[in-house]
Design a protein around this nucleic acid. Sequence first.
DNA 1: TAGTGGTCTAGACCACATG
DNA 2: ATGTGGTCTAGACCACTAT
Lengths: 253, 253
Amino acid sequence: MSSDATIAGATQASFSPTFSPLYQQIKALITQSLEVGEWKPGDMIPSEIELAARYKVSQGTVRKAIDELAAGNLLLRRQGKGTFVATHTEPRAQFRFLRLMPDEGEQGYPESTILECRRVRAPAEIARTLELKPGDPVVTLRRLLSFSGYPCVLDELWLPGSLFKGLTAERLTESKAPLYSMFESEFGIKMVRADEKIRAVPADPEAARILRVEPRAPLLLVERVTFTYGERPVEVRRGLYLTTRHHYKNELS
Amino acid sequence: MSSDATIAGATQASFSPTFSPLYQQIKALITQSLEVGEWKPGDMIPSEIELAARYKVSQGTVRKAIDELAAGNLLLRRQGKGTFVATHTEPRAQFRFLRLMPDEGEQGYPESTILECRRVRAPAEIARTLELKPGDPVVTLRRLLSFSGYPCVLDELWLPGSLFKGLTAERLTESKAPLYSMFESEFGIKMVRADEKIRAVPADPEAARILRVEPRAPLLLVERVTFTYGERPVEVRRGLYLTTRHHYKNELS
DNA sequence: TAGTGGTCTAGACCACATG
DNA sequence: ATGTGGTCTAGACCACTAT
C-alpha cells in the first residue's frame, strides 16, 4: 500500500513536515476514495476495523474521521449495518436541497416539467463560476416545478458539458426522479454542498406568465452554486420561487 | 451530589429504565447549568478533568458531551485556555444571525436606529409563538438597520414582557451594541438558535418610504422565531430586507 | 512549569441487524 | 452466532497558553 507514505509512524504524526492530525489524514484518504469512485453512492464502505487495518491506525482514529464525514453528510452511519456513501437516491435525501415549504400541510411530491434543454457555449460569468474557460460547452436547461398543480419554481441550470454528455430533454422527461438523484445515477455526479444567494425581484413577463402571477409581482430569486467532492463546482442554478403559498425555510444556529 | 441518581453505575447505563447514553446525560446536565446561569456567557466552565470528577465519568465521556455542545454553538473550546460559554458579546459572534451580505465588498458595521418601542398586550399569534397567553405583556419595537448610510433592513420585534422589564427606547438608543449582545448583557437572555421563513413581498407604503424604494418594490420578508436554551422561544422578528445591493446568504449541506 | 484542550491507542462491553 | 456501529474507560503524549 503506497498510501503508507502519507501516514506517519505507528504512534504519532508529530514529525511530519506539514503536521496534521492522523484522523484528518484518514479523512482525506476516505474523501479521495469517494472522489475517484472506489465507493459509490449507496455503497457500504469497509468496516471501521477493516479501515483501521488498511490505514494502520486504531479504530478510534478511523471512527473520528468517519464521524466528521458523516456530520458533513458525505457518509451515513447505520448501527448494526455499516457505513454507507450518502446518496440522493433514497427517499429521505431526495429533496435535501429543496427549502421551499408549503405554508401549511405536508410537502407533496413535486411535478417537474422540462421547458428547454440546450448545449451552448458558456457565458463568461457561468464559465468563471464553474471554473471553465469562456466558450467551453455547457448544458443549460429550464424547468418548472409544481406542487399539487400550482407552478412554484422556475429554474434555469448550467452544467459542465464535459460531465453531462448525452443529457437531453428526452432523457430528462423520461426520468421521473429528482434532478440530483438522476445526475448521480446517470452521470455519476454526486452533489455535496451548495451556496445560495437569495433576493427579492420583480417577475419578468415570461416568468409571470409561467408562474401565473402579474408582471412585476415579487418573487424569490435563488442563485445557487452546487459543489461535488473536493469543492469542485458542477452546477449553477438560478431559481425564481413563488412564495405566496410557500416559503423558504431556514435554520440559524 | 444528588445528580448521581440520574447517572448510572460506574461502567454502564444499560440497566437504566429509560436508557440514554451517559454522555447525553452529561450533556443535559451541562445544558441545565447553562440554563440556570451557573455559568454565564463568556465564562470559562470547569475543565474536562474537573467535570469528569464531578459527574463521576471518564474524561472521554465529558469530552464527547462538550464536543456536541460546541458543535451546537453553545460552548466554545479554546486549546490551551479552556471551554467557554458562547456569547454574542465577542466580535466574532456579534453578527452570527445576520445573513444579509453586500453583493461585493466587506460587511461593514451596521448602524441601528430605533423607530419605536412600546409595551403592549400580545396579539394572539405572537402569544402562541412565544408560548404566552393572549394579552400577556410583550415589548414590541421597530428599528432600521443601515449599511454605510443605506437603509437596508426594517425590523419589527416582539419580546416577552416578563423577560425584558425595563427595556425602553432610551436604553436601546444609548446602547451601541447589537441587539442580541445587549439582550444578553442587560437581560441575561442568550439567543441560541432561530427558525426563519423567507418570502418575497411588495413594499407597503411605509416600508417603501423608510427604505427609500418605490411602493410595491420587491422586498425580502424574513420571519424569525428565536430560541434560548431548552428550545424556549423568546423573540419573534419580522424583517423587511432590501436586496438590491445585498443578498441573503445561505449554505446547504 | 503547570494547566488546558487535542490526539491516539487498546480494550471492553452494549445495541442493533442479519443469517 | 456473527458482524456492524455506539459507548465508555484508562492512560499516554502533543500542542497551545499563561505565569
